[in-house]
Design a protein around this nucleic acid. Structure first.
Lengths: 365, 365
DNA sequence: CTGAAAGCGCTAACAA
DNA sequence: TTGTTAGCGCTTTCAG
């Protein structure tokens, strides 16, 4: 291929930018600059031990620039055994905005260190076999490492071939342990949420919990109780209503909660969707927010939290941060700056910060 | 790296699965099978013209399997000048759930045809220069083609180096024309939305429009008017109130709309967020939905549309479909099955389907 | 029916 | 201070 036969003359049109079809390589630069490929490689890569005269350096750089040279990363990778690519296996990329935040955090961290992301989407329900195939695809492309992200905090069983390359889990933990992972501080987040109610002066505080058997359900409950107990209240007997963690579930659970004789003045909701349901229930029962009821959510789903009325004070999940943290550690490991095995014993836990809006005020009295 | 020095003996543990560090290649398979690399390559790739005896075929396959052979796509790519990778430049991946749908559509279409996605995130506000660099990064990795996606339908100026590889735009159009692109049928979507109101029997229909100068603003307005006119109503004088396309804007615009002497019984909103604002305004003014007011939105942001009360009937943007369509065409072009230039004259327009929920009913009288 | 060998674009010993 | 050359793992022409 590439200019076979032809070219009687005039192969070089103008002297302008060489927008020829043929992509130009290190060799072309070498010839044009009148040096060897080694020299070109040396100066373009700033090889430490290479001794090249300043003039040659400038010349090579100028020529490379003029020719519009760009390295062929494939060839580089083949030779150096380093692709500079990170595989990101993401569950349910589209279903939740959370995945987007993880990807963004990972992408920015990766680019900052000269890496790029290859993304593979997988269904949360995908078989182990199909997830093995996803990893395999990444491996065939010789990614330097793999990030494995789930859409919500859970424990998963990993395909075995994942172990053939550095890997870190985002928002999940391996059931078999021994893989580095980063997860949100569910319990701490719950404490902060409850703390915001406590700080406002509330003493009758209820919790609308989820019914799924996931880490968040248990840890947020634990945080809820602990925060109350530490404040001298009876956390262990504080009102808790659990339902499916959607708007409808929140609505139903809130209705029950509000009918209790000791109706709380402060309400902590498992997530923003349930909080939205609680808003509805409150509206129907003529309970004003935040006047008669203060509420705090979890997740910070902007579309909901910022848009319901009043704006929902909530606790944010550190998706961006988890994506970034995982990527940093992964790259550290790839570059030999960290030993992932040392981090693998326990998941790393990241803070869930409070995002204040207008749904909390002091209790009526 | 990788086993330096060591290995006095015992480098081969068991005879079991070869989980050695060294990745095994075509050559290893060849040796183990007692054939040449050519033969291995031929059978593993099902090369058409290759004539290999069935026995050898089976043997090679078995050995490859046993050794856990997986091709090195880098080497393949270097040799064949085809990476099987598509670059996806996505604006604001995290800010909107829409980007996720596009990515999902693209990913599924790509995988179905044996391609993978490399994702680069860019800010909508990024300079041309930085976007040029994004494209350059993809080019250096020798992607076979590029998908360029924006977070909402708009016209953009593309970095010039994008033209050096097949490319298609998703949810955007090139200001300089001549690039294949796919966008939603804004006008058609508006007609369908208005049609749903018309079909329910409404004759006084208003439109809460956006104030931004983007294609959707103009086209949805056009669709609104046309649908009314075609139904024998006076579309050109139908009530329209425009505001910033957020919840607050919708609220303000709705307030104005509801105070009109000829208050509409049907309301078409520029998007679901504005519809949410309209819900609030209606609630405050004691107007029931859908009893006294039917409303239809646009975008189908599930978090909103499915969760407000009553569920919002709305028109969905075909993000998944655009991502998939663009990917299909891109691959067609790469494989020589399509000439993108032929599609480039006009953007391809995809339908926006109605998603029915509970916000529309027949007018009171 | 099967194999030898060239070369994709690049890096890194090793020579000069 | 610079150049020659041997591969990285694979595909593919061309000879057996």
């Amino acid at each position: 291929m590439s200019c076979p036969g032809g070219g009687t003359q005039d192969d070089y049109k103008d002297v302008g930018e060489p927008l020829t079809n043929k992509t130009i390589g290190i060799k072309d630069v070498a010839i044009a600059a009148g040096v060897s490929v080694t020299t070109v490689s040396h100066v373009l890569n700033d090889v430490a031990y290479a001794r090249v005269s300043p003039e040659t350096r400038d010349k090579v750089k100028a020529v490379a620039e003029r020719l519009g040279y760009g390295p062929n990363r494939l060839a580089q990778a083949l030779r150096t055994q380093r692709t500079g690519m990170l595989g990101l296996i993401s569950e349910e990329i589209a279903t939740t905005p959370h995945a987007g935040r993880i990807i963004l955090g990972a992408d920015e961290a990766a680019r900052a260190r000269g890496y790029n992301l290859m993304i593979i989407n997988t269904s949360g329900a995908a078989s182990l076999e199909s997830r093995r195939a996803d990893v395999e695809a990444l491996l065939e492309r010789r990614v330097d490492g793999i990030l494995y992200a789930t859409m919500y905090h859970r424990k998963i069983t990993l395909p075995d071939n994942l172990s053939s390359v550095p890997a870190v889990l985002v928002d999940s933990e391996s059931l078999s342990g021994n893989v580095t992972s980063v997860v949100p501080d569910e319990e701490g987040g719950a404490r902060i949420a409850v703390g915001s109610l406590l700080d406002a002066g509330h003493t009758r505080i209820g919790f609308l919990n989820n019914t799924d058997d996931v880490p968040a359900t248990h840890e947020r409950l634990r945080g809820f109780r602990a925060a109350l107990n530490e404040a001298g209240l009876d956390g262990d007997n504080a009102p808790v209503e659990a339902e499916h963690s959607e708007v409808q579930g929140g609505y139903v659970a809130a209705l029950r909660m509000f009918r209790r004789p000791d109706r709380p003045t402060g309400l902590f909701c498992y997530n923003d969707r349930m909080a939205m349901g609680a808003y509805r229930a409150a509206a129907e029962m003529g309970i004003t927010i935040p006047g008669e009821l203060s509420v705090v959510g979890f997740d910070d789903q902007e579309l909901i939290a910022a848009n319901i009325n009043p704006g929902l004070t909530t606790v944010a999940l550190p998706h961006y941060e988890m994506g970034a943290w995982a990527t940093e550690r992964l790259i550290d490991a790839i570059e030999g700056k960290t030993n992932l095995a040392l981090l693998a014993s326990h998941p790393t836990i990241l803070d869930c910060p409070l995002v204040e809006r207008d749904s909390i005020t002091a209790p009526r009295n």
